[in-house]
Amino acid sequence: MGLFDEQVAAVERFLAEERSAGNVREFRAGSRPAWPSEQSLVLEDDTAIELGNPRIASLSSLVWSEGPVEDGRISLVGPDVSEMDERGVPFAQVVIAGGKFTDVYESYRDVREAIYDTVLEGFMVRTMPSRQSIWCRISREAVSGGFSLEDLGDALIWNLKTVEPVTGAEVLFVTSSVADVERLAPAASGARRVIEALMKMYEEKNFDCETCEYRDVCDEVMDLKKIRERLADQKAGAGP
């Protein structure tokens, strides 16, 4: 069982439900020219669309799967940028990376940095890892230049696949409603708990399960348990 199997399954259930209701549009990464990559500051005055303002609804999640992923698929539930008729739009971004993640700790950092490295002209992103929030501004210029969430998905997938163990990646965006964004919240916070447990193991090297606040997560996720046992063995082997 993989680290994020439960969350990946939850995201897939969400997609399946939306798909059967006819609410999902799919794009393929690489089917249009890449949007220029550039770190951008978008001031309020230049902002046409704001995605995931914390006062509306926002969610960002990164999970991975060691099983097959739909490589290159960009799914969109809700309006795309050109169809948005309000300035403030609820937003969820879920990234599913596929591959064999042997060094989970390093891999997680690398994959996360690939997401941070995704910068696009006229598009400003702010993310808050601990709150799983993402807050983006799209400039008027980018909107009139035809910027689409397809461009964002495309850039994310491209960058993710530069990370060594990543062999495939897919992205889901939700812009339909606050309620739809919130449906993904349990999966996002579940993934966050797994990561926090992992970080704690690696950084604090404390394997006293009786006192650990993440014990329930470890008990659920077999892979975490295995990692913990391996690390604890290493520590014991290292001697006094």
Partner: peptide, 28 residues
Amino acid sequence: AGERSKRGLAQAMDYRLAEAIIENGNLA
């Protein structure tokens, strides 16, 4: 809360800074 990586903290800082900035036209 357990965030130790420089990049993660930089992201958190940028996010919070965005909340703290007050904008007025071309001025922040």
